[in-house]
Design a protein around this nucleic acid. Structure first.
Length: 540
RNA sequence: GGCCCCUUGGUCAAGCGGUUAAGACAUCGCCCUUUCACGGCGGAGACAUGGGUUCGAUUCCCGUAGGGGUCACCA
């Protein structure tokens, strides 16, 4: 009896690997085309890190005329969450990061290298595992959890490196005959990879982002097929990325230390390993310590959070691109109207260490994204957001014609549009006074009877049909009449001559009309508010 | 703890042996014919630390400290 008999006993129905090699041939792409993917597990809401990886992967694939695909890694049936795949594909779509190939919903996929859901590829993995067993490069292991734990304890006590390797790899020494008998007797087992590595030898691997990294060789006989017949991540990665003809594996750098194992797996299998790009995670400052963004603790770790607070997907992507390649900012400034797809992204320019997620910066990016929008777009997006998250705002926006005018203030016909909105949840506060007369007034410098007088004088001269210049002059007239300086400059030269200047006066009017001291251009506000409303608000 | 990676202003970061050590966000001041948002100008603010190597180190090497990752039949 030999390895082949053992392999046949374990996986009697597995097809030869040649079948799959033929079914999934080398891709016919141009030189330098990058085939890459995002490979999330359907374990709940989509993580910002997944989005980050997808953005990067898709960008480099697009720019090289390659392929970006989505593969679902659902081999851990315990952790899988209902609707998890839909959540991922939905998020990807929402952010405009849909794939060229792979899963497009919980049940649908596209492309010729599928299935793209690992649980559907069971027989493929078994076929490749069978090959390794028949070549003596993998073997069944009958150790149970208890034995494994005991060994680990012993190792820890003896200050030895824990794990299933060398002398500790007991089932490596089980003869083929014994193994066959145990299996026939119904013993439960997993398949382990027989590592040819030596802990004392070093290997140097080259990562596209991290550069050259030196590791001890892997000598752990890791599990490749679990007792439920499904593969572990390591084996699935090797089989899938070989068969899907992936050229670049872009993934979080928590995988960096498995690199010696993965490369070994490829080499022993006789396949060319892909290029690896390990990206640093997005971090969070937690009481002075950096840690990875966590879905449990940080709302911004979940991708849906940005929809909730009303930050555009485009803004999130721009911010992420900013973190990924710091040259993006300069590019954006020089190419204000270009799509971010045109940005020449460079994988090897990515930072090797994790960046702190910075809301302030995100909002700044977002503010600029919104400033490039038309009033109509701002209206549509806010309205869409309000329908879902803010009833009060939705009610305000029911009058579309008027709202369009409101959003048009200092936006339409302006090459320097306002930048006071960074998210849709800012909108209501920002425009409320255009819909409801203010009830509280803090006039700042001019108060009481003096303020009343200013308002009365202004009301006397108010004429909605004044052009801006005339309106402006009238404001100065009011200032003069009430004893304030016409010009700010004059006042500054002689601050003792007047109790204040025209700015003080306009503030009173501004507050009377809007209830606040900070607003966009008052003249435009008055024009949009209209004669009747302005006059009503001027009655004191 | 073993192994691996990282360390430039508050944050994101250029830099790759000789620079007045870029830029962006944030912050402060001034200007922008009246506020605010823009925009402009300017200010403050950094090479973790100790040794080497070198004529010269932010840049190269070693140590220390700090941070991160990883050591599963999870991905």
């Amino acid at each position: 009896m030999d390895y082949k008999d053992l392999a046949d006993l374990i996986f009697p129905d597995a097809k030869p690997v040649e079948y799959y090699e033929e079914k999934y041939p080398e891709r016919n792409l141009k030189e330098g085309a990058i085939v890459t993917r995002v490979a999330p597990s359907p374990t709940g809401s989509t993580h910002i890190g997944t989005l980050y990886q997808a953005l990067i992967a898709r960008t480099v694939a697009r720019q090289s005329d390659g392929v970006f695909f989505v593969r679902i890694e659902d081999t851990d049936t315990k952790r899988e969450v209902e609707g998890g795949i839909d959540n991922i594909t939905g998020s990807l779509n929402y952010f405009g990061l849909g794939p060229d190939e792979g899963m497009v919903s919980g049940t649908e996929e596209k492309g010729y290298y599928g299935p793209y859901k690992q649980s559907l590829r069971k027989e493929i993995y078994q076929s490749f595992a069978k090959k390794l067993i028949s070549e003596g490069k993998a073997y069944p292991c009958f150790c149970n959890e208890e034995e494994l734990n005991k060994d680990r304890e012993k190792q820890e006590k003896a200050k030895m490196r824990p794990g299933y390797y060398g002398e500790w790899a007991r089932c490596r020494k089980v003869t083929v005959e014994d193994a066959i008998n145990k299996i026939k007797a119904g013993e439960s087992y997993v398949i382990r990879f027989k590592s040819p590595g030596n802990e004392n030898r070093k290997i140097q691997v080259s990562d596209v982002i991290k550069g050259k990294v030196t590791f001890p060789e892997n000598d752990l006989d890791i599990v490749i097929i679990k007792s439920d017949g499904l593969p572990t991540y390591h084996f699935a990665h090797c089989v899938d990325d070989h068969l899907m003809r992936t050229t670049h594996v872009i993934r979080g750098d928590e995988w960096l230390s498995s690199l010696p194992l993965h490369i070994q797996l490829f080499k022993v299998s006789g396949y060319k390993p892909p290029k690896y790009c390990h990206i640093a995670p997005i971090m969070k400052n937690d009481n002075g310590n950096k840690r990875k963004l966590s879905k449990r603790k940080d709302p911004e770790a979940g991708v849906s959070y940005f929809a909730e607070i009303g930050v555009l997907p485009e803004a999130v992507k721009e911010y992420l691109l900013n973190i990924a390649n710091s040259t993006f900012e300069n590019w954006r400034r020089a190419n204000k109207d270009k799509s971010i797809e045109e940005f020449p992204f460079q994988l090897n320019k990515m930072s090797v260490s994790g960046a702190l997620f910075d809301f302030t910066k995100l909002f700044d990016v977002s503010k600029n994204v919104i400033s490039r929008l038309t009033a109509e777009e701002v209206y549509n997006y806010s309205n869409e957001w309000a329908q879902k998250y803010d009833n009060d705002l939705a009610k305000l926006l029911e009058d579309k014609e008027y709202s369009l005018k409101v959003f048009g203030i200092e936006r339409n016909n302006s090459n320097k549009p306002r930048k006071d909105l960074s998210k849709w949840s800012d909108v209501k506060d920002n425009i409320i006074y255009m819909y409801e007369a203010p009830t509280e007034f803090d006039y700042d410098k001019i108060t009481g009877e003096d303020a009343k007088r200013v308002i009365n004088e202004y009301a006397k001269t108010f004429d909605i049909s004044d052009d801006k210049q005339t309106w402006f002059e009238k404001m100065k007239d009011v200032a003069e009449k009430c004893g304030y300086a016409r010009e700010v400059k004059e006042f500054k030269q002689n601050p003792d001559k007047w109790p204040g200047h025209v700015g003080y006066v306009s503030t009173v009017i501004r507050v009377t009309l809007t209830g606040r001291r900070n607003t966009p251009d008052l003249y435009e506000i008055i024009q949009v508010l209209g004669k009747d409303e302005v006059e009503k608000r001027l009655v004191k």
